[in-house]
């Protein structure tokens, strides 16, 4: 039972290993001649004045909220897609109704201008 997950496990280990090896290899193989000027945050840009931690606009939060809601929609699409053949036409209609109701919300968001940045 658990053995059937071995390919996924190998893929996760392979992906993480690749990322770590590539990052670390750069550290070891790449030439390094640091100087004070090179190590500054923006070598040929503006001098950083304040902390980068600033209060973010609430707009970001609204985008995140909308992302969560539509992410949960995807959660329902996933089992529906897997058992689509089993469900047949009634399954198609149920999902159509579900998406239609959420489309109302989507158009509300759109008309209210919440997708506009300014």
């Amino acid at each position: 039972m658990i053995e059937s997950y071995i390919p996924i496990f190998i893929m996760i280990v392979g992906a993480m290993g690749f990322a770590v090896v590539m990052g670390k290899m750069n550290e070891f193989v790449g030439p390094k001649r640091p100087s004070e000027e090179k190590l500054s945050t923006y070598e040929s840009g503006m001098e950083p004045v304040r902390s980068a931690r600033e209060r973010f606009s609430v707009k970001f939060y609204m985008v995140a909220m909308l992302f969560i809601v539509f992410d949960i929609e995807v959660v329902f699409l996933y089992p529906w897609a897997v058992s689509y053949k089993l469900l047949g036409t009634p399954g198609f209609i149920t999902m159509f109704v579900f998406i239609a109701v959420l489309l109302v919300g989507y158009f509300y968001v759109w008309r209210k201008g919440a997708l506009e940045w300014d």
């Binding site: 809601v69 529906w80 058992s83 469900l87 149920t94 579900f98 109701v101 509300y108």
Partner: peptide, 25 residues
């Protein structure tokens, strides 16, 4: 879960869409 959700628990599933719309609004 898919087979159960879209047959036996169809009404709760459809009501969820209303809940999500309410969350958006």
């Amino acid at each position: 879960i898919g087979a159960q959700l879209f047959t036996k628990f169809l009404l709760p599933f459809e009501v969820t869409s209303l809940l999500l719309t309410a969350a958006i609004v």
